[in-house]
């Protein structure tokens, strides 16, 4: 009667292995294209701003998610920001230990409401604090491809 039969020999249950063998090519969208093109070509960040709701978006959006207004003017907000929050990562993706922990932060850009999740670079762990000012460290222009990887991380403001 029972659907489940008690398993006493753990070598009996068998399984079938497989994968979903696809890969993805994402476009960045209307606003994302402008944002990453500008990172690549000009080394700075763009925002959009909704004057109805007084909210700004970094990375920019073509619409305000509060009131649905179309946002079509882009503002250069520079590459300065401050640490909103951070964490230390001691493990690699495969679970092995990192020799030097990676510092991952949520960086608020300028005086916008938006920000980026990225690494902190060039800091001693002890000196990191929430609220600390940081500045984006970009790859040299010739190596930039128009992607989040064009940003090496956020470093100290000198």
């Amino acid at each position: 009667m029972a659907i489940t039969e008690k398993i006493t020999d753990t070598t009996v249950p068998t399984f079938w292995e497989g994968a979903i063998p696809v890969r993805y090519v994402y476009t960045f969208g209307l606003a994302g294209e402008k944002f990453f093109r500008t990172v690549k070509d000009k080394g700075t960040f763009l925002a959009t701003y909704c004057d109805e709701c007084d909210i700004s978006f970094v990375p920019p959006k073509v619409y305000c998610d509060r009131c649905f207004k179309e946002l079509d003017s882009y503002i250069d907000v520079g590459t300065l920001g401050y640490v909103e929050t951070f964490t230390l990562s001691f493990r690699n993706m495969d679970g092995s230990e990192k020799e030097i922990p990676k510092i991952l932060a949520m960086v608020r850009i300028g005086d916008t409401d938006g920000g980026l999740i990225h690494y902190l670079e060039g800091f001693e762990i002890d000196e990191i604090a929430i609220g600390m000012p940081v500045k984006a460290v970009l790859k040299p222009k010739s190596q930039r491809k128009g992607s989040i990887e064009d940003i090496i991380g956020f470093g100290p403001v000198r």
């Binding site: 994302g32 294209e33 959006k61 073509v62 619409y63 009131c67």
Partner: peptide
Amino acid sequence: RRAQETGKELSWQASKMALESCDLTLD
């Protein structure tokens, strides 16, 4: 076949048009 817009942007374009077609706002 292949849109430049992200899925979010496509959703917004259709949704905004639907609201405008009956004179409503997101509120």
